[in-house]
């Protein structure tokens, strides 16, 4: 390992990559499959973190994950309800829920903008006690987050190949087909958003225990970062089974963290993080388009060269 990227930087990039990958997977469901831009992501992430932190403080670090996911499902349900039953446009529904969640999150956190878990047992502190070995001590965090992400990936891949999962994928793929099939788009959108929001909230809860704290601003900008991870992951693989695509979304998230880590190593101040994120997102989104353009220019050059040879 070069001195530029130390082991601890690589490790924390992997750890954060896996934790935030859950949000990218949520956008994979809502944005890639359902074709809905769910802007409640930021608030939902903090919601998961807050609920998780409160339950963890009560002494149930495992239960915290399920509580966070249940809160996520509730948030996703409200977003979907506004869209499917109240005639609110999907982007507006997300913004409305996101705004409302800010207050809800403060309420969950007991009207404080910050909670710390330093004196509380988390799954990380509990796992740390399992062994004294130095190797284990430096890798146990990665083992935990990889296990969580793998579990979610396996569940998601299984779910998206069930009858219900297929219906959800069709809902975002061809509106006309759905209307002519006996798929109730209101139902599939609701289930899809609930699953997505549960993953977002789970991500928040894991991050809270990982950072030993919860802050009302943890969620800010999550949707952009997750979108960047998702697009990086999807541009790495054009087609393939759902499981492959899901795994590549996780890889995309890890790659994004590496890019950020490298950017920060170039002596950029930590305040520049959001700008760096925005630039990476812009590059990631335009990359496939630019690649196609470059292919065309190369093709044109080859044709011209061939033509001038023949003259």
């Amino acid at each position: 390992m070069s001195s530029f990227l130390t082991l601890s930087i690589v490790q924390s990039a992997l750890e954060l990559g896996c934790i935030y990958a859950l949000v990218a997977l949520a956008l994979f469901v809502s944005f890639s499959l359902l074709n809905i831009a769910d802007l409640s992501t930021d608030g939902c992430f903090t919601l998961g973190c807050a609920v998780g932190a409160v339950v963890t403080m009560a002494g149930h670090p495992f239960l915290a994950f399920f509580a966070a996911m249940a809160a996520g499902v509730a948030s996703g349900f409200i977003t979907a309800f506004l869209q499917t039953k109240m005639g609110v446009q999907s982007i507006l529904a997300g913004i409305i829920v996101n705004t409302g969640l800010y207050t809800i999150n403060l309420m969950v956190m007991g009207f404080s903008s910050n909670i710390n878990l330093f004196n509380t047992n988390t799954i990380f502190s509990m796992a740390k006690e399992l062994s004294e070995s130095e190797v284990y001590r430096s890798w146990y965090k990665i083992i935990i987050v990889v296990c969580i992400v793998l579990l979610v990936c396996v569940f998601l891949a299984w779910f998206l190949n069930t009858s219900l999962g297929l219906s959800i994928r069709a809902t975002g793929d061809n509106e006309y087909m759905v209307r002519a099939s006996s798929i109730n788009p209101g139902f599939t959108i609701t289930v899809g958003l609930c699953v997505a929001s549960a993953m977002t909230a789970l991500s928040g809860a894991v991050l809270g225990q990982y950072q030993k704290s919860c802050d009302i601003n943890y969620g800010t900008g999550q949707v952009t970062i997750a979108l960047a991870s998702l697009i990086i992951g999807e541009s790495l693989i054009k087609k393939g089974s759902i499981f492959k695509r899901v795994i590549f979304v996780v890889l995309g998230s890890c790659l994004y963290r590496f890019i950020v880590a490298i950017a920060l190593r170039m002596n950029l101040p930590a305040e520049a993080l959001k700008l760096v994120s925005a630039v990476i997102v812009a590059i990631a989104i335009s990359f496939p388009y630019l690649k196609e353009k470059a292919g065309f220019y190369k093709h044109r050059r080859d044709v011209m060269r061939q033509a001038s040879k023949n003259v």
Binding site: S167, R169, A170, D173, N174, Y176, M177, S181, S182, I183
Partner: peptide, 21 residues
């Protein structure tokens, strides 16, 4: 183009039609 989901496989499209009906 209206009757099928383009990003899903032939098999998955048929499964949707079969399962629902």
């Amino acid at each position: 183009l209206l009757g099928t989901a383009p990003h899903m496989s032939i098999e998955e499209n048929m499964a949707l039609a079969y399962m629902r009906a």
